[in-house]
């Protein structure tokens, strides 16, 4: 089934929160994204997996304009991503992102990392921002760390802080770029638990990851990305039991046996 048919099968376009059509990107001469089509509806949890260098990270970074796509259209919550400065800023406010390397602000305290954007971008009062921040820190499980600095936290705590920081802006969509790849194994679970809770609360999420347990638990669809485009996608059960393409089978055999 093509992506477009799937979309028409589901609700009308008003429910679609991300629409990517024929997205191309070149790095110099290297054609990294080759005509990607993707539609995400509100509240859906999408997992993207694939070999390194396939372009999956580049793709989700195009969605919040950390990378610029050269051809095709990307529409987020009705706003099209063009060279329009206002559009770009509007989209970036609606999307939260969690990075593989956390990218926390080392010179600010934990609580300030979370309250910075709401105060300066959404122009909330300090009290309101702090209140929301404390709720978020409790939600991700690190309320007692509020006065410390990110460098004093463990890897798992830092990534959970990063999730809280992204949630502080009350985004409509959350992007995750390999959030657990830089963590020691014993800390992966605490981060995944937060992400599962987030998914169950109805957040629209696109997650690039190799954590297939997480995918089985909450994903609505899994996409296999290779060579700059989507090779195939399906619901988790179908994806793991009946992969259609050769490349998908090969990839699954590599990651599921280790």
């Amino acid at each position: 089934m093509s992506e477009k048919e799937v979309a028409m099968e589901r609700s009308d376009t008003a429910d679609q929160i991300i629409q990517c059509r024929d997205v191309h990107k070149w790095f110099g001469n290297f054609h990294v994204l080759r005509g990607v089509d993707l539609i995400v509806c509100k509240g859906e949890v999408i997992v993207i997996c694939g070999p390194s260098g396939s372009g999956k990270s580049t793709f989700i970074r195009c969605i919040n304009r950390l990378e610029e796509h050269q051809k095709g259209t990307i529409v987020v919550d009705g706003i099209e991503l063009t060279n329009d400065l206002r559009n770009i800023h509007a989209v970036q406010r609606e999307i939260g992102m969690v990075f593989q390397q956390f990218n926390l602000f080392p010179h600010l305290k934990v609580i300030d990392n979370v309250t910075l954007a709401p105060i300066w971008v959404r122009r909330w009062s300090k009290d309101r921002a702090v209140k929301i921040a404390e709720e978020l820190l409790t939600r991700v499980g690190i309320p007692e760390q509020a006065q410390k600095y990110p460098g004093q936290l463990s890897g798992g705590q830092q990534q959970r802080l990063a999730i809280a920081r992204a949630l502080a802006m009350q985004p409509k969509i959350m992007l995750f770029d390999e959030p657990t790849s830089a963590l020691d194994p014993e800390m992966i679970k605490e981060v995944l638990d937060v992400m599962v809770e987030l998914a169950k609360s109805g957040m629209t999420m696109i997650v690039v990851t190799h954590e297939m347990g997480f995918a089985k638990q909450v994903a609505d669809r899994i996409y296999f990305f290779d060579d700059g485009n989507i090779v195939e996608y399906n619901t988790p059960e179908e994806f793991f039991l009946k992969p259609r393409e050769e490349r998908t089978k090969k990839f699954l055999s590599q990651i599921l046996t280790h």
Binding site: N64, L66, Q92, M97, F99, A117, W120, V121
Partner: peptide, 23 residues
């Protein structure tokens, strides 16, 4: 200053000027 700081600042919605001054 690692590139990731620039990206995190942009991802959280700060414009260029605020990114420079605050982060």
């Amino acid at each position: 200053v690692p590139r990731g700081q620039y990206e995190a600042a942009q991802a959280v919605g700060l414009n260029k000027a605020l990114m420079m001054i605050l982060i």
